[in-house]
Nucleic acid binder design. Structure first.
Lengths: 195, 195
DNA sequence: CTCTAATTTCAGGAATTACTGTAATTGCCG
DNA sequence: CGGCAATTACAGTAATTCCTGAAATTAGAG
């Protein structure tokens, strides 16, 4: 339903903001939080809460809660503006930095808790065969997540330029490994791993 | 609130199932869908809807809807069982395959729509300077997503063993590039790219 | 310290999403 | 074709999440 939404926004900006609002629910944030983020992302200068109220026609307190949530995700930063007592907010300029933040926060919320539960459950003694099977499945899942997070820990420190290079290389990396697969041991800091 | 939940499940399985239920909301699925998936994941044999009703104490129709949703995600597959008219369901055995499916489906739901909206908005003529700035931001976002999806398209075809190797290599790949960064052009199928 | 602008908290109501039981449908078997 | 088991659609209700306006709090300026 294309419910009427009075926004004081240029058409391009408005379409962008509305899209982020709609996607919000799929991304685990709500509509207004999505809209606030989108607005800040495309804004050429930091905005204060009242600017956002005006642009998106939300209540003042809703904007306050939305900004708080976005700050909790480190996706929005307070930025002081000279000669204005009101807080202003921006999104970081570098989109690759934004990606890193997003990855970090989603990992923290969406995978770390599961990893720790899995570790705990794998410590318990199985009561019967069903349990034993269940634990073997949990072990597989645990192994996969560990592998992914180890890789992520390795990758996340890369500065943007490097990361782009690595992405551009993509799957072609494995071509190397065919020819010369001892390289896997090349720059290893720590000693042997289980697998 | 640790609301009373009568599940007919071994303690280990129950803890796992409850955890998936709680995480469900963070993952964009609801509690019961999370629980159903968890149960199938650790079950040594395919289960039918009634088994799930029994194990999790949900209504029959709720289970039906949950299974439908999980099938929509390709995370759960119907599996016919001899001499039983009822449909039975499993999760795929290979966790790496599950990861691939998950990535595929999340991309389809969470990034593709945004990519296409961005493309569309970038075609439009800006009405003023604000629009021009907004478009430059959208172009940055678009570039990032394109880069990621290109990489993903490259990676997703790898069979599990290769993928594991690539993950294990991690950031060390870039060490190579320092020494010999012409390799970037090695196996390129298509001609030059913008960046 | 007081006054005022800015922000946040919070309780209640609105909107959305999830769940249930019943009724309808499907499809297999004789 | 019935007849029966299994599944699904759906409407009503329960639960959750979201949003608002009013009241409380915070913080700077004078």
């Amino acid at each position: 339903m294309p419910e009427y939404v009075p926004m004081n926004l240029a058409p391009l900006a408005q379409q962008f903001v509305l899209h982020f609002g709609e996607m919000g629910s799929r991304w685990g944030i709500n509509r207004t939080v999505g809209q606030i983020y989108a607005l800040l992302f495309i804004s050429p200068r930091p905005l204060c809460a009242d600017d956002i109220v005006e642009a998106l026609d939300l209540s003042r307190s809703n904007v306050s809660m939305g900004l708080r949530e976005l700050q909790g995700w480190n996706l929005v930063l307070p930025r002081h503006i000279a000669d204005d007592r009101r807080d202003h907010f921006t999104t970081p300029a570098d989109v690759w930095q934004i990606l890193r933040t997003l990855a970090e926060e989603r990992k923290k919320r969406e995978v770390d808790p599961t990893l720790s539960v899995l570790r705990e459950l794998l410590m318990q003694k199985p009561g019967n065969d069903e349990d034993r099977f269940a634990q073997s499945r949990m072990a597989e899942m645990h192994g996969l997540i560990e592998q992914l997070t180890t890789w992520y820990d390795d990758i996340r420190k890369l500065e943007s330029e490097r990361l782009v290079t690595l992405l551009a290389l993509g799957a072609r990396v494995t071509k190397f490994l065919d020819i010369k697969d001892k390289v896997v041991t090349l720059g290893r800091g720590r000693s042997g791993r289980k697998t």
